[in-house]
């Protein structure tokens, strides 16, 4: 177990290094820091303003190796950036100058309030619906449901949001269409609609996937054994199919758990929820390169964390798997 963890972490090191190199190349080599400054300050910015902007953010250092006499060779943009990220120092916003660790910490809670309930409720609903579809075994209902799933998958998120917002908030006026207040239980009324929309937008793909998963389990030999023992169809489904299906489901679902903290780019922007998705959206509009770069770095760490978590959950749930 310990050696497994160690090997896994060692495997992550080159990947994180690769991601860091990639982002550095993308942000500082494909475009020059000067071009970046012009994109932020506008094309008509004076050379002086550009220089000041670059200097304040440390972007005026030599790119890879410092060859200026009397300066240490490692005082370059690349090395200082890597050292900073290696210590999990995310830096400061290009636009506001606020430390990004603070920005991200503040955004995490609203994001989690949106994504965790949506994830849990969505998972329960799609597993339930998929099981029900497998249970009824009705050709017509099956065809209708799979068409409906494909249809649900084919609608882009923003269309769901626009229609949902318009119908629920403006026509029926049940919930606020916009805004967010972190204030005990009353926060829920701001979150209800975005959570519902997040569930609906993911439902089609999930139900389809889980249905296929459960159908595959249902064709296995041990299901025949269970039926030959006299187990009722409902128990076959809820005990034998579900447990095996859920183990396969782990590979698909657990990896996405860490990303719940990143929130939802579109939904948070639409509803004015000050989460991490909104932070990123604003950064795209600004543009704030430091925020996007830090998000990429953080996102890759979360992805690798998800891989690890998947392995651990798999080993815990499936008696056939041992980590070593």
């Amino acid at each position: 177990m310990f050696s497994y963890l160690l090997r896994r972490l060692l495997f992550f090191v080159p990947i994180v290094a690769g991601v860091m190199l990639l982002t550095f190349a993308l942000f500082f080599m494909v475009q020059s820091p000067k071009a970046m400054a012009h994109r932020v300050l506008g094309p008509k910015a004076t050379p002086k303003a550009v220089e000041l902007w670059l200097h304040n953010r440390g972007y005026d250092k030599p790119l890879l190796i410092n060859q200026i006499p009397d300066q240490p060779w490692h005082d370059s943009l690349f090395i200082s950036q890597m050292r900073r990220l290696a210590t999990f120092d995310l830096g400061r916003s290009d636009v506001t100058g606020r430390p990004l660790s603070e920005v991200f910490r503040q955004g995490a809670l609203p994001s989690l309030l949106l994504t965790v309930p949506a994830f849990l409720a969505g998972l329960a609903m799609s597993v339930g619906l998929a099981l029900y579809l497998v249970f009824i075994r009705n050709a017509a209902a099956d065809l209708f449901a799979s068409l409906l799933c494909v249809a649900l998958m084919s609608v882009p998120v923003m269309v769901y949001v626009i229609f949902g917002q318009y119908l629920v908030a403006q026509v029926f006026n049940y919930f606020p269409a916009f805004g967010f207040q972190l204030n005990g239980w009353s926060t829920a009324k701001f979150l209800f609609l975005p959570i519902a929309l997040m569930i609906v937008s993911g439902l089609g793909a999930d139900v389809r996937l889980f249905r296929a998963l459960f159908l595959e389990e249902l064709g296995q030999d041990y299901i025949r054994t269970a039926r030959a023992k006299g187990v009722s169809s409902a128990v076959v489904l809820l005990r034998h199919v579900l447990k095996n299906g859920l183990i396969n489901l782990i590979t698909l679902v657990v990896a996405s758990l860490p990303f719940l903290i990143m929130g939802s780019l579109l939904l948070e922007n639409f509803f004015g929820i000050p989460g991490l998705g909104n932070v990123l959206f604003t950064a795209i509009q600004m543009p704030d390169f430091a925020v996007v770069q830090a998000s990429v770095f953080l996102g890759s760490l979360l992805y690798l964390g998800g891989l690890l978590l998947t392995d651990l959950c798999y080993a815990w749930a499936d008696p056939r798997i041992r980590l070593h």
Binding site: I15, V16, G18, V19, L22, T23, L26, F27, V30, Q31, F259, M262, L265, L280, I284, P287, F289, V292, Q293, S295, V296, G299, S300, L302, Y303, L304
Partner: peptide
């Protein structure tokens, strides 16, 4: 390495640059 960066972030970063 490419897959380690969430897709939407990667897209946004590349398109911004």
């Amino acid at each position: 390495t490419i897959a380690a960066v969430p897709e939407i972030l990667m897209l946004v970063a590349i398109l911004m640059v």
